[in-house]
Structure formats: C-alpha cells, structure tokens
Design a protein around this nucleic acid. Structure first.
Lengths: 236, 236
DNA sequence: CCTTATTGACTGCCTGGTCAGTTATTAGTA
DNA sequence: TACTAATAACTGACCAGGCAGTCAATAAGG
C-alpha cells in the first residue's frame, strides 16, 4: 500500500469515504447494531481513524444522514420555480422524478427507513427533514394545485388542503419496497401511470372533458401538455 | 404483597404482562437498544423471570410482534365478506376502519415502524405480515374494485391492478405521524374525507355524474350509499 | 527530522443470559 | 388446627462477550 499521496487524502476524501461506508452499515443494521469496526473495515481503515474526523458515533450518524439526503434537498430547487403550462404536466414531471428518487433509488429509501427507525433517538432529524425537504415539497405541490384551479384545469378539492394526498402513492411504493424487498417491488411504469391516471381523474375540473379556458391544447387528460422539457411517461 | 394467589399468575397473566411491557420498550428504543432489565422493570418483575417464559430476547420480540398485530389480522375477517351494495360505500366504510387502525391507533403505527426498522434482522416478520395482513387486504380491495366495475359504478382503471393506490393515503398518514409525531399529525376527518373524495372522482364511471344503473341512489359522490350498517364520516 | 495521518492494543462499561438460592403456595399428616 | 414437606414462581448476583472511545507508538511524506 505504498501508493504515492496516500497520506495526503485527509481533508479531501477520507470523510466522504467514511460517510459512505457508514451509510451502508447503518442502512444494513440500524444505528445501535452498527459496529464502528465494521464501518472502518468497509472504508479500508481502522476505527481510530474515524475518530479523527467524527467526534462520536452519533455525530457520524448525523453527518451520514445529512450527506445522504443532499440529493433530496437539491431536487427541491427545480420544484420551486413558478408554475407555467399545464398543471397536470407539472405534476406528471414532478412525480416521475419523485418516484425515481424515493422508490427506485435505494439510498433515499434507506434514508426514509432510518428516519422512521431512529426518530426517537434523534428527534432533530425529523424536524430538519420536514423543514428542508417534505415541508417545501408540500407547499410547492399546493401551489401547483392552486395554479391548476386558477387556470380552470382542476376543480377545487381537498388536495389544496392536503397535497400529501397527491404523493401518497409514492410513499406507499417506497415503504412497500422497504418492507417486502426488491423482489416484491410495486414499481414499474404501470404503477406510476396508474397513480397519475387516478390523480388526473380525481383532480380534473368539471364532469365533462372540456379544455381549460387558456391555452389551445386538447383535453387535459390526453397525454402531457406543454410547460416542461422533461421526458414523459408512456401511457397505456 | 401477600395477596392470595399472587404466585399462581404464571400461566395466566405473566406472559401477557411481559409482552405488553416489551412492546412499549421495543417501540420506544428499537430491538437492539431495548434492555431486558427495563422490560422487566416495566412489567414489575426481574430479568430472570422473563427467561422463564421466553427463551431469548429475539423470541420475546417475535412474540411481541405477533401478539400486537393480532387486531390487524382479526380485522381482515370483516373485509373478506362478499361485497354487496355500493362499492364506494364499501370503500368508505373500509377506509374509515383502516384509518382508525393504521393512523389513530398508536400500537398499529408502532408495529409498522418496527417492521420497517427490523426487517433485515427478522426477515420472516415481513413475510408473515404480507401473507396474513397486507396481501389479503390488497386482494379484498381488488375484489371490491372489480365488483364496482362490473356493477357499472367504477370505470376500468389501474386500481384493479394496483389496489395499493387506494390505501396509499392511509400509509402516508401513518408514516407521516410516525416520523413527525402526534403534534404534526395529518389526520382529522378532513384528511379522510379528502382521500375519499379524490378516490371517488378518480374511480367513478363516465365523465358525467350519472348514477350507476342498479340502485336508485343519487349521484355517487353525495354521501355514502347503501350496503353497510357502519357509521359514516361527516363530509364538509 | 519534523509534521501529519494512521494504527491497534487497551480500557471501561454495558447487557444478554445463567443459576443457585429465596419466598410463596399447596398438599399431606396427625 | 398446627406443622412439615414438596413444589412453583421468582429473584439478583454473577459471568462472558462485545463494543465505543482513547492514546502512545508508528509510518509516510516533505
């Protein structure tokens, strides 16, 4: 192990490597059952080295959670833009991302698992998650729903008060996969399509398929509308 | 402590008391962090006594989970009856129960938390839960949806393939409360009403509010229909 | 040779599990 | 009723192993 520059890695790569290894072990065994010796072994170092970068096991756990939830926090930026185009198209795009992140990405799933498992030990974790991730997302979704209502595309509904109802199927698929494993995963494009289909029918304005009064697009439920450059899901 | 018959409680009450105390401790701290001394103290006995009734900590945990999930298993009996009356009314009744059990009942919530937290340590737990609780529920819901379609009340939709979409908001409210605590609970009748409203609009047949061809009830979304003797939720 | 990153042996504490002993209860005897 | 033996239920001190956290020693760079 006499690679040049091996000792110079401290401030650059070591903390990231430790956090990476810690995530795998915490996700596998939970906070209490995780042994720092195992984390160190996975990172290719010894336990003492961990304490050069993190003052305690708890701090390592908090740092790991914060680091691993970064993608979720960054994803929010895209959602907070002012809505334009078809509200349903915005939802379609958003839930495609959301689904890819919360269901198909193993890391985000495991973050959710650890949040649920360790809230009693780390109450601040849930608070931060709500303040930085879920809360803003709920508010953004609420704006989209109101935008759709103002636009005449959506009817007034409980979705304005509880935007949570809109992404509930994503949480469902996430917890399902967490609980029953990848072998029984509830995903695939069909599930997302079904989610969006029920959503559209549940939200859309009026009992008859009349187009919204603004843009000249067709009926709202015929495929995705304008207002986004992101790929659309196929619809059966 | 010279109450007559105090020593005769063994086969009758002791195991139940231990399981009860164990549930509280496991729910509070998770499997690993729970100390059997604390369980014993909560049950008003000493650790040695636990080992008179349960061979190991793991066995105590499994027994606790099995015992505490009994209400959920028993609740299924009501759901497997042959559907009759309005399909929407069946769903309404069912989700009122489901909501009371999975969201408002602290014990069932904590069971879900422990299942999610400890699947990697006890893989059989999730299998049993799927085989005995969730699986039958999904199938029962699927039958209700098909019944609604055959009856002309529901349109064909992805809910036939994924009945999970229907109870996703219940799981959402459950995990929300697990994560953010009772203070930020997402419940109250309004949430359930919103859920049912979106569900009804999402499932109902046709684009115009025509009544189903069978019974002479009004438009499907005006209150609960016939076919059940259970109490209805208020609708705003 | 001086600095810096890393090691690995060590300690102290904690907790699952054990078991010889203690106490309450019942059965038996007269 | 009084007294004793047998049994059932329970206790608590103890052990053994495991693991978070420490620190003097070591090796790698410059």
């Amino acid at each position: 192990m006499a690679v040049a520059g091996q000792r110079r890695r401290r401030k650059e790569e070591r903390p990231g490597e430790i956090v990476e290894a810690a995530f795998e072990e915490f996700a596998r065994s939970g906070f209490m059952a995780t042994k720092l010796d195992d984390v160190a072994a996975r990172a290719g170092i010894t336990k003492g080295t961990i304490y050069l970068y993190f003052p305690s096991k708890e701090d390592l756990f908090l740092a790991t959670m914060h680091e691993m939830s970064r993608p979720s926090r960054e994803h929010l930026a895209a959602l907070t833009a002012a809505p334009q185009g078809s509200a349903m198209a915005i939802l379609r795009t958003h839930f495609a991302f959301e689904y890819a992140q919360m269901v198909e990405d193993r890391r985000t799933r495991e973050i959710i698992r650890m949040l649920l498992a360790e809230v009693s030990r780390f109450p601040d974790l849930a608070d931060r998650w709500r303040a930085e991730v879920i809360g803003p997302e709920v508010e953004a979704l609420r704006r989209v729903v109101r935008y759709g209502v103002e636009r005449g595309e959506f009817r007034p509904s409980a979705a304005e008060q509880f935007p949570h109802l809109l992404f509930a199927p994503v949480i469902m698929a996430c917890t399902w996969r967490l609980m029953f494993g990848d072998d029984h995963a509830l995903d695939g494009p069909a599930y997302l399509d079904g989610h969006l289909d029920l959503l559209e029918r549940g939200l859309m304005c009026g009992s008859r398929p009349n187009p919204p009064p603004s843009a000249g697009e067709g009926a709202p439920r015929s495929g995705a509308g304008e207002g986004t450059t992101l790929p659309e899901r196929s619809r059966p």
